Simulated assay, not measured.
Amino acid sequence: MGFLDVIKENSGWIKDITTVIFTGTATVLALLTYKRAKATVLQPKRTEVTKKQTKILSDFLTVIAENNNSIDSALDYVNLLNYNVDLVLREYGLLEIPADSEKYQEY
């Protein structure tokens, strides 16, 4: 029995195994290519978002500077923290603040 006879007898499962290996390799390659292409295509969008965020922050800092305040004295960090904590606790149902209450409207 020669080498060619062995290949002829087992050609069905050899073909199946090579097809699985080829398909798996092609799938992994396609996924990696898609991931890289998605990052490249969305890059200009991220740049525009960064530009807009920078503009908004610049405008905010200009308003604070016009009032001769520093950002530390212009923002009330303690109340901002308290408001955010209260809103998160309300969201998780750990704090009862009715939506029509004056405190909720202030938040």
Rank of each mutant, 00 (worst) to 15 (best):
K51I: 15
L75D: 11
V41M: 04
T27F: 00
S101R: 07
T18E: 09
A39P: 00
V49G: 01
Y104P: 06
K55Y: 14
T50P: 01
V6C: 02
T50S: 11
G2E: 02
N10I: 00
N79F: 09
D5R: 05
G12T: 08
I56W: 01
D59I: 09
I64D: 06
T27A: 03
E48M: 05
L81R: 03
N10D: 01
T33L: 03
N67P: 02
N84D: 10
G24A: 14
L32K: 11
L75S: 10
L87W: 09
Q43T: 14
T18P: 04
D86Y: 06
A65I: 02
Y92I: 05
E91K: 15
W13P: 04
F60T: 15
A37P: 02
T50R: 13
G93I: 02
A26R: 08
Y107N: 06
Q53I: 11
W13T: 07
I14A: 09
D100C: 04
T18M: 11
T40G: 03
D100I: 05
V6G: 00
T19W: 09
V49C: 03
N69D: 10
E66K: 10
L31Q: 02
Y92F: 06
N10M: 01
E96Q: 07
V20W: 14
I14D: 09
L31T: 01
N79E: 13
L87A: 14
T19A: 13
Y77E: 13
D100S: 08
